[in-house]
Simulated assay, not measured.
Amino acid sequence: MIDDLEKVVTSVLPTDPSFRLIGREELDRCINEACQNALANAKDAFLLSLMRLLALPGNGHTRLIPNNAISVLPLRFVTIGTTTRLLDARSDISAAIGGELISINGVPADYIERSAEKYLAGTPQRKRVIGPIMFAWPSALQLLGVPSDGEKITYRIRHATGRIRELSLDTADLVRASTFYPRNEHGKADASWAPQSYCKIRDFGQSGALIVLPSFFDPSETALSAAIAEAATLAGSLPARTLLIDLRGNSGGNFLRTMPLIDAISEGAKDRRVGLLVDKFTFSAAIVFSAILKYRLGERLALIGEEMGDGLTFFAEGGTIELSSSGAAVRYSTAFHDWAGGRTDETTPAEIAERMVPAGALEPDRIWAENSDDVEARDRFCREVFESLST
């Protein structure tokens, strides 16, 4: 693990510009703590130390991802709105699924959440996305002040009816964290969920059309471009039609390849209205997509859902380093983005800088914290949105 730490100190910290404003003393304190845990062969404590170190800049694209390196209790917690819910669990305790987490070993969930903040990178919304893994990680719970009675951890879960259910799980009954917590958290009940296509279109006739864009990350480098071309053709063929674009759960990818759709939407009728569905699981390139559309459409664009997973000023690009000894991964950044003020610096790639726009603030015009996959409920909501956008 000393080798892992050296890789972070020599390769990530000097490269990632988000660390420029972090004082040397603060960095050294976190590095020394990680070193002590590595020398003690305390793997989980070491990983938590690295999480704290990499969270110092408050930049969500710069962070330690422990999911493949740790074991957790067989519980999948996800933050829906501002409450933490159990969305999946081992089959014999599945009756508690859907309930809200109240406490762990008597400690209120919101207290644990606040205690975990310093280990989590990024904005409050991103912390709500990546933080729930801490509720199922026994080593983290101990560090966050949850007392242990030895072999059991007891969760109190409240159902929508108000009924309280207690779950007592053996701390030895662990599974690989990636079973319940994907590296790119999407907020779905099924941790293994992956988009089946890059574009789905639902035509609501004269009311408008829904375009679902679940991801902008395409390893094949062809499927996304084809999907964007399909969506752009639709937008261009219906220049006056209201469009609703669903970016919920879209963790990003390459925004440059979405520009044909942005252009097609922008070139529509001057009175065309567009709605964007977003949530805390909307990240990176999907946020940039939203910023450019907002800049071009102004008041004709309505943001619907909840605050997205990052702000408009951040460091990104970069890459991922795998830590061979611990099994964790480090995401680091190399480029400055400012889609609020339109600023660039020497780290901003030219192809991004030439498209940088001052979008201002991107705050929801209408709150909707819904993560259900119920198509009928979604369609009803879409019809309501189309009606509100047309008035």
Rank of each mutant, 00 (worst) to 15 (best):
Lys43Trp: 02
Asp44Cys: 03
Leu39Glu: 13
Arg24Ala: 10
Met51His: 06
Ile31Gln: 00
Arg29Val: 09
Lys43Val: 04
Ala34Gly: 07
Glu26Arg: 09
Glu26Thr: 07
Leu21Ser: 14
Lys43Ala: 09
Ile22Met: 01
Leu47Lys: 00
Leu54Lys: 05
Leu54Gln: 06
Leu21Trp: 13
Arg29Asn: 10
Leu27Phe: 06
Ala45Leu: 10
Arg52Lys: 15
Met51Tyr: 04
Asn32Asp: 12
Asp44Val: 02
Ala45Asn: 13
Leu47Gly: 09
Leu21Lys: 10
Lys43Arg: 07
Asp44Thr: 03
Phe46Gln: 02
Leu53Asp: 09
Asp28Ala: 10
Glu26Lys: 06
Ile22Glu: 02
Leu48Asn: 01
Asp28Phe: 08
Ile31Gly: 03
Ala45Pro: 08
Ala42Lys: 05
Lys43Gln: 10
Ser49Met: 08
Pro17Arg: 00
Gln36Arg: 12
Asp28Tyr: 07
Ile31Trp: 03
Asn41Pro: 03
Leu54Asp: 08
Cys35Gly: 11
Gln36Lys: 10
Asn32Leu: 09
Ala40Ser: 10
Arg24Lys: 09
Arg20Gly: 14
Ala45Ile: 05
Cys30Pro: 06
Arg29Ile: 10
Asn41Asp: 14
Asn37Ile: 00
Glu33His: 11
Ser18Trp: 00
Asp28Gln: 10
Met51Gln: 11
Leu47Val: 02
Ile31Arg: 01
Ile22Ala: 02
Leu21Glu: 15
Ser49Ile: 03
Ala38Tyr: 01
Ala42Asn: 12
Arg52Gln: 15
Ala40His: 06
Asp44Tyr: 04
Gln36Ile: 11
Cys30Val: 11
Pro17Ala: 05
Phe46Leu: 05
Cys35Arg: 12
Ala40Ile: 04
Ser18Glu: 06
Lys43Ile: 05
Ser49Cys: 13
Lys43Tyr: 04
Asn41Glu: 15
Leu21Ala: 14
Arg29Asp: 15
Ala45Tyr: 06
Gln36Ser: 13
Leu50Phe: 08
Ser18Ala: 12
Asn41Met: 12
Leu54Ile: 08
Lys43Met: 08
Arg20Leu: 14
Asp28Pro: 00
Met51Val: 03
Cys30Gln: 13
Glu25Lys: 03
Cys35Ile: 08
